[in-house]
């Protein structure tokens, strides 16, 4: 990653998966490392079972706007495969790196039998055609192993931290986790984070 280039990262998933917390961690790490940070988030109605995405933009020198222009995402962190594909279609380019949790969350139109959820292989094949790398991490299962499927977001943040896609030290992440989480929640989230670092190395 060139030092002066703006880094555009999208975290995508479904409402309730902890997008905002994940982007908050990354934003704080970047700010501590001297970057200008802006994150465009999804709150409110659209969060109710809908698609959510956070646009995280890290820059030196000048601050960016809250939305990434189409085709300009460097990194996509996907908490859900279908949403990852949806975001990739609009925002990825041939150099984009994707880290993805393959566990599907079915839209209610699919549950009702009116819409088709594509097979995971189809989703991954299409993603691979579009971007430079797709790494798959079973984050929900890993999170369940440490005690709660809810912390899959921190597993994914761990993956990002361990990926060297961002020019930040692990220590900076750890410092932010300590600052954000209360003591009782830190243990669980830190465990999830550490598992994520390890899991990515095995992809």
């Amino acid at each position: 990653m060139r030092r002066n280039k703006t880094i555009n990262l999208i975290i995508t998933g479904v409402g309730g998966q902890g997008n905002i917390l994940a982007s908050q961690v990354i934003a704080n790490v970047a700010s501590d490392e001297g970057y200008y940070v802006i994150v465009g988030e999804t709150y409110g109605l659209s969060q109710r079972g809908g698609s959510v995405m956070s646009h995280v933009r890290l820059s030196r020198g000048i601050e960016c706007g809250p939305l990434i222009p189409s085709g300009m995402a460097d990194i996509i962190i996907g908490f859900e495969p279908l949403e990852t594909l949806r975001v990739a279609v609009q925002y990825s380019n041939k150099d984009t790196s994707v880290i993805l949790n393959p566990r599907p969350n079915y839209p209610i139109g699919v549950l009702a039998g009116d819409l088709q959820y594509p097979a995971l292989d189809e989703i991954l094949d299409n993603l691979r055609k579009m971007v430079s790398s797709v790494r798959v991490v079973e984050a929900t299962e890993l999170a369940s192993k440490v005690g709660s499927s809810l912390v899959q977001n921190m597993v994914m943040v761990g993956c990002l931290a361990g990926s060297s896609l961002l020019p930040f030290k692990l220590k900076s992440f750890e410092k932010v986790l300590k600052a954000i989480f209360s003591e009782d929640k830190l243990r669980l989230n830190k465990k999830a984070f550490d598992l994520g670092i390890k899991a990515l190395k095995n992809t």
């Binding site: 079972g49 279908l82 279609v89 839209p107 189809e122």
Partner: peptide
């Protein structure tokens, strides 16, 4: 591939 919409 068709990407199904995700209704709230």
């Amino acid at each position: 591939i068709e990407i199904p919409r995700r209704e709230v």
